[in-house]
Design a protein around this nucleic acid. Structure first.
Length: 337
DNA sequence: AAATGTTTCAACCGCCCTCCG
DNA sequence: TCGGAGGGCGGTTGAAACATT
């Protein structure tokens, strides 16, 4: 037995606003300001509830509202802010002049959420989706595409590589899942070798990037120092604007190597090593990350888990996520915090 | 051209918080 | 301290526009 909707009272009008109503509302507010929203409709000669008037004004009629398509920069900001704030649309809107929370929310639900899902990210956590099944539709689609193409046209080199990349990505996502599972198992069982380590290594060895590159099979990062964020800096995963610029442009190539340091019973660490130039060999994975960011952060340092400041004591300190958790000083976070 | 399906987004709903008497 | 009013917020709905068959 909840409170009855305000507009049910007194047969007040609901639904789309007419130009005449808009005109009345705008004129009244420009003359008198909105004051009490509840009192406003009567004073302005509108047969609407105050709430409806407030919504119409704040979401549509306000003179400082910017309409039209969201720019690339706005899109990046929303993604970034959402990764920090979650569904706090009004908070996000304060960082985007002229945009309303409602507009941002709609844009998120109709565009950005889908985009992230398509790219294999969980739209709520902004982390890669670790469930292999989430990748299956894409893989199946690719497989079907390949069948079709083989039937009708010879598969070109780039398409072949794309498909191979997708399969490798799925493997790596699954690997991440295994490592995350292993992290909890290992932590709880105190050094016990578990099957998941083996499973992970077997999977790795099936990926050309690991099999063919001697660096990747070595204990290359044995003594690598963890990337330490420092005490006064705020760090955010993934959605740096410069990264996001590339989310919408999957053609931006970046080659990287992933090193696995595995000593049985001690867990695994990932190290991302950027390559200065892009040799485009078949063993490279192509991801939409800009080279400069990766290279500055991963030059001979392992990536550690942001939530785990004492990662050196954790046997899986660097294995929290396959996708690079990039940490950087974030002005917006400073502002918020 | 018509029917059907999908997407978009303005508007509504109801919960929650703050303010004030 | 309590309770009601008002406003803000996030989630949801549904009509209109657009796309596809």
């Amino acid at each position: 037995m909840g409170r009855s909707p305000c507009c049910d009272e007194n047969g007040l009008k609901k639904g789309p606003w007419t130009p005449e109503e808009d005109e009345k509302l705008v004129q009244y507010i420009q003359k008198h300001g909105h004051g009490s929203w509840r009192a406003l409709p009567k004073l302005a000669g509108l047969n609407r509830c105050g709430k409806s008037c407030r919504l119409r004004w704040t979401n549509y009629l306000r003179p400082d509202i910017k309409r039209g398509k969201f720019s690339q920069e706005e899109e990046q900001s929303i993604l970034h802010l959402h990764s920090i704030l979650g569904n706090k649309w009004s908070a996000i809107a304060t960082h985007l002049p002229g945009r309303t929370d409602n507009e941002i929310k709609n844009f998120w639900n109709t565009h950005l959420k889908k985009k992230l899902i398509q790219m294999g990210f969980d739209p709520m956590t902004h982390q890669p989706r670790t469930d292999l099944f989430s990748s299956l539709p894409h893989l199946l689609a690719l497989a079907n595409l390949r069948d079709l193409m083989v039937d009708h046209h010879p598969l070109d080199e780039q398409a072949m590589r794309l498909q191979a990349d997708a399969v490798q990505l799925a493997k790596l996502q699954y690997l991440q899942y295994l490592l995350q599972s292993a992290a909890s198992i290992t932590t709880n069982s105190y050094g016990q070798n578990d099957l998941t380590d083996m499973e992970a290594l077997n999977l790795l060895s099936s990926i050309p990037a690991f099999k063919e590159n001697p660096v990747l099979n070595s204990s290359h990062v044995e003594n690598s120092s963890s990337f330490s964020p420092g005490s006064t800096t705020t760090f955010q995963p993934l959605h740096h604007p410069s990264l996001l610029a590339h989310l919408s442009d999957p053609q931006v190539p970046f080659n990287f190597q992933t090193s696995l340091n595995s000593e049985m019973g001690q867990g695994c660490n990932f190290t991302m090593i950027s390559q200065g130039d892009n040799p485009h060999d078949d063993s490279s994975l192509v991801f939409p990350f800009p080279t400069p960011v990766i290279s500055t952060l991963t030059d001979d340092m392992s990536l550690s888990n942001p939530g785990d400041a004492s990662s050196s004591t954790s046997s899986y300190g660097g294995a929290s996520s396959f996708w690079p958790e990039l940490f950087f000083e974030d002005p917006i976070m400073h502002e918020i915090s």
